[in-house]
Design a protein around this nucleic acid. Structure first.
Length: 425
RNA sequence: GGAGGGGUGGCAGAGUGGUUGAAUGCACCAGUCUUGAAAACUGGCAAGGGUUCACGCCCUUCGUGAGUUCGAAUCUCACCCCCUCCGCCA
């Protein structure tokens, strides 16, 4: 959520951000109109309410003085009715304004490259060499099905499309990866491990920015006002919703493994083969609450924490700074980490590391207080560290052998009882 | 699911329908004292919105939402959450 006071001061700047995002800059004009309407409606209602309050205070005094107050009471009864209507109008104006405000994306950091689409994303660095195989690389799903590790067909029977059953070494490796990532982040990068609820209420969804705009992207429960989380970002960031933290508590760093559930509405026909785009997948998430002065520093660090997973697994990747047209709704700046997949001959996203500045903090009302100071909004950041299923894909495709077996990266072997290879049979 | 108890400021904790935006304590800030610190003492200290160059003034907020009333933290109803006991259960 934007700071409306800043928008009032520099509307042109905020219009510019919308243009850069390929969004309609007139949304700012509409927002300011709605804001003015809100102020006017509130002012009228408050003026009347002020009269009613002061007369109501007078009444007991007049009574004590022995005066007759029947007329005044009757007058106030009528005024009260009038105020009720005015307040209702004011509330409608407030709701309209707030709804509009919730639909406007975040500002952009100066370092975000301008651009229309993902083609204009900026490669920040490439790490490692693309894996060279002496034979034609298979895709992870062909490998997985051949080895009896991935069962898409039965998953479709049990549930539907975009689900998968992991068997044997695939299931074992998925679990090992979760442990490996959590151990790394807690032991080496200073995160506190957390297991949050996998369902959240609508308030939390609004806090991190999924609601109201991206309601269709999440799975909803029918008989409860709960929603399956699309990412651990939602429950973990909302952990401090509505709170004022002591400045000494910052930064707060959490790493959480959760399954993630996404409806993938709007991506029909995209990535239908394999594990790339599923309705349910596992992810280890990194979330930070930091002092506003430190958030860009923290963003670089958080990104490096995600990268470290790939480095240890000896997978090659690129870090890409998303351009203004490709960056997500709530992010002020975002690095995607794309891992090399020989089976697809392409880099594919395996992590997305964002600095939201105070966008989420404002929505979720997460503040901190300096000694003796006024409450201020914290900055929130998060990133995948990493998407577990996609990491498994990357290992399958990069570590495949000509005979159909798959080597297990050294760093992962200790989490798999020393097993070095997934055998052909 | 049943029966009780409770949700008040950063925290703890008072609160008779009418100067209660809210006692008191802790924390925090400023000052006095002190070589310095601590202690003690004095004063200050909620958030959000509106308005003002500013001092200030106005509105809202005591879990949430409705209601009663000229006036609600205080009365009524619904819902949410927490605690205790019982039942059920991994």
């Amino acid at each position: 959520m934007l700071d409306i006071k800043l928008v009032e001061k520099e509307p042109e700047r905020f219009k510019k951000y919308l243009e850069l995002r390929n969004d309609n800059p007139h949304a700012i004009d509409r927002l300011l109109d709605l804001n003015q309407t809100r102020k006017d409606a509130q002012a009228i209602a408050e003026e009347k309410k002020s009269i009613l309050n002061s007369v109501s205070k007078e009444i007991p005094k007049l009574k004590k003085a022995g005066e007759n107050v029947d007329d005044k009471i009757k007058e106030m009864r009528d005024l009260g009715q009038e105020i009720k209507d005015l307040q209702e109008q004011a509330q409608q104006a407030i709701d309209a304004f707030e709804n509009a405000l919730l639909m406007i994306p975040n500002i952009l950091h100066d370092s975000v490259p301008p651009g229309k689409s993902e083609e204009e994303n900026q490669i920040v660095r490439s790490v490692g060499e693309k894996t060279q195989l002496a034979f034609e690389a298979k895709s992870h799903d062909d490998l997985g099905v051949e080895l009896g590790l991935l069962d898409f067909e039965r998953a479709a029977k049990i549930t539907g499309a975009r689900f998968c059953v992991l068997r044997k070494w695939a299931a074992r490796m998925e679990r090992a990866l979760i442990n490996f990532m959590l151990d790394l982040h807690t032991e080496k990068h200073g995160y506190e491990e957390m297991i949050p609820p996998f369902m959240v209420n609508g308030n939390s969804m609004q806090g991190t920015g999924q609601f109201p705009k991206f309601r269709e992207d999440v799975f909803h429960l029918e008989s409860y006002p709960y929603h399956l989380i699309p990412t651990a970002e939602v429950p973990v960031t909302n952990y401090y919703a509505g709170e004022i933290l002591d400045v000494d508590m910052l930064p707060q760093k959490f790493s959480a493994y959760t399954p993630c559930f996404r409806s993938e509405a709007g991506s029909h026909g995209k990535d239908t083969k394999g594990l790339i785009r599923q309705h349910q997948f596992n992810k280890v998430e990194l979330v930070q609450f930091v002092h506003p002065d430190k958030s860009y520093e923290a963003h670089e660090a958080l990104t490096s924490h995600a990268e470290e997973v790939l480095k240890q697994l000896e997978l090659s990747y690129q870090v890409v700074s998303l351009c203004s047209g490709d960056i997500s709704f709530g992010a002020a700046k975002c690095y995607d980490i794309n891992v090399w997949l020989p089976g697809q001959q392409a880099y594919r996203e395996i992590s997305s590391c964002s600095n939201f500045e105070d966008f989420q903090a404002r929505r979720a009302n997460i503040r901190f207080r300096e000694k003796g100071g006024k409450p201020q909004f914290v900055h929130t950041l998060n990133g995948s560290g990493l998407a577990v299923g996609r990491t498994l894909i990357a290992i399958f495709e990069n570590y495949q052998q000509e005979d159909g077996s798959i080597l297990i990266p050294k760093a992962l072997q200790v989490h798999m009882k020393g097993v070095k290879v997934i055998p052909k049979d």
